[in-house]
Amino acid sequence: MIGFFALAIVLIASAVWTVAARKPVYSVVALLLHFAALAALYVTLNAEFLAVTQIIVYSGAILVLFLFVIALLSSGVAAFAQGPDRLPKAAIPAGFAVLVGFGLLAFGLANATPQATATSNSGSLHGAAGLANVFGSVADFGKALFTTHLLPFEITALILMVAVIGVVLLAGDVTPFVSRTADTKRVKREMREAILKEGGE
């Protein structure tokens, strides 16, 4: 319980720091801390595979790319130029959202049927727990992902694929579906003809 509260405090504090930091790189560091605390929280919930995946995917890949972009864009260490302070205007909708959120939470808690909580959260990291069908183990996670939740999993994969293709289309300098060499040849020919024409005149 003490562990949960400590982690919760770190989680909330780092989340606030992520949003409030003036320098974007500080936001990345805060988010990194946030992900680490989140992973630790997953471990206390016996979801060790989720914890590890969370670190590998979010901290190890996605956040690194954020940092990559931020480091390239703001190569100086100066904070971004201060724009208009939008925080006061955002306070009213944000406060409303917080109230709605807490309202829903209170409603849910009041109407929830009490369930048996896990009696033991130790041992998940040790020994043979991962071999048996224990909640949160690798085998269990894989089974759930590829049987019960196969459709959402595949749809997510498709959406990511679409996103990747979209990025290539938007950012790539190569025209898709056109042979690059043919294209280059055409451009070169046009240039040559233009030069010849100029020389002739």
Binding site: A39, V52, T53, I56, S59, G60, A129, G130, V138
Partner: peptide, 10 residues
Amino acid sequence: VNAGILLLMA
């Protein structure tokens, strides 16, 4: 750790 290799990667 039973997810040892994954933790190592992480």
